[in-house]
Simulated scan of single mutants.
Amino acid sequence: MLSNKVGKQLGHPTYSLTGWLVTKFLKWHNQILEENAVKLSNIQPNDTVLELGHGPGLGLQEASRLLVGPRGKLLGVDYSQYMHQMASKRMEEQISRGKAVLYHSDLVTMPIEENTVDKVFHCNCYYFWPDLKAGAKAIHRVMKPGGIIVTTLRLDSLKKAASMGVLTGDKWRPEIYMEALECSGFTDVRMENKREKLIKFQAIFANAVK
């Protein structure tokens, strides 16, 4: 029961003691993944960049430092109202200047126009999507032709979470996520092993073709 409760909070943190604890865990556990997702996205000053499942906003903050061009813009989507409000507070200055827009929305219905996003990144969230293929299609819809998506994860941690019952089913498996990307119009889908500060993690890359 506890593992199931924690799993639900990881996917959709709420205003609760468990949600607060999960948020603290996400800030600590995801920081290296967030920083590297931004780094590996090769963000350019005038790109339009989207983070999915942005959580408390660590990745948004990193990405905003790179979008220094006059047309550079940052978008964020999170299904949790708690995370949306926390990230909105963190990004208050960028939002007020029109450099960032955050949406409290699910992935499939995110109110972002077609063919407008250069780079997409996300960390530790694809396995919480209700439908991987529908999610991948929604991402492909908003991306420009040739756009790049980067996903970072720690496979060892996912395997452990699955063995403990925190993650259920098999959507956590990278190959299933990668297959969903390929079925939705992405090419050159690949996973690479990375290391940062003695921490091993994986990065999945894909290109949007239209």
Score class of each variant (00 low, 15 high):
26 L>H: 04
39 K>F: 10
60 L>H: 01
50 L>V: 12
39 K>S: 06
98 G>L: 10
79 Y>M: 14
103 Y>F: 14
92 E>K: 13
107 L>R: 11
83 M>K: 02
49 V>Q: 05
115 N>M: 13
82 Y>H: 07
87 A>N: 08
114 E>P: 07
45 P>H: 02
44 Q>R: 15
49 V>C: 06
17 L>G: 11
41 S>K: 02
41 S>H: 02
116 T>A: 15
81 Q>P: 08
78 D>F: 01
75 L>R: 08
25 F>L: 08
74 L>S: 07
28 W>L: 09
42 N>I: 11
33 L>R: 02
50 L>G: 07
107 L>F: 11
115 N>H: 13
27 K>Q: 03
73 K>W: 13
21 L>E: 00
66 L>P: 02
84 H>F: 15
114 E>M: 13
40 L>Q: 01
48 T>E: 11
25 F>E: 02
86 M>A: 11
20 W>E: 04
24 K>I: 12
52 L>Q: 03
55 G>E: 01
44 Q>C: 14
68 V>H: 14
59 G>Y: 00
26 L>R: 04
25 F>W: 14
69 G>M: 07
103 Y>W: 10
110 M>H: 07
113 E>I: 14
54 H>S: 10
77 V>E: 06
80 S>I: 00
108 V>S: 08
80 S>L: 00
102 L>V: 04
67 L>M: 07
72 G>S: 09
42 N>S: 13
58 L>S: 13
19 G>E: 00
78 D>W: 00
22 V>M: 02
33 L>V: 02
46 N>K: 08
46 N>M: 05
22 V>W: 00
50 L>N: 10
54 H>P: 07
44 Q>K: 15
108 V>N: 09
51 E>V: 09
47 D>K: 10
89 K>H: 13
34 E>C: 09
94 Q>K: 14
59 G>I: 00
67 L>Q: 05
52 L>M: 08
31 Q>E: 11
112 I>E: 04
119 K>W: 05
56 P>S: 02
57 G>P: 01
73 K>T: 14
64 S>D: 02
114 E>L: 10
79 Y>V: 15
40 L>S: 01
74 L>T: 08
99 K>V: 05
115 N>A: 14
48 T>Y: 12
72 G>L: 12
105 S>K: 09
65 R>T: 12
23 T>W: 05
89 K>P: 08
55 G>N: 04
18 T>D: 10
63 A>Q: 08
110 M>G: 09
112 I>C: 09
60 L>M: 01
51 E>T: 07
91 M>W: 10
77 V>M: 06
84 H>C: 05
42 N>V: 09
20 W>L: 11
74 L>I: 08
53 G>E: 03
35 E>V: 02
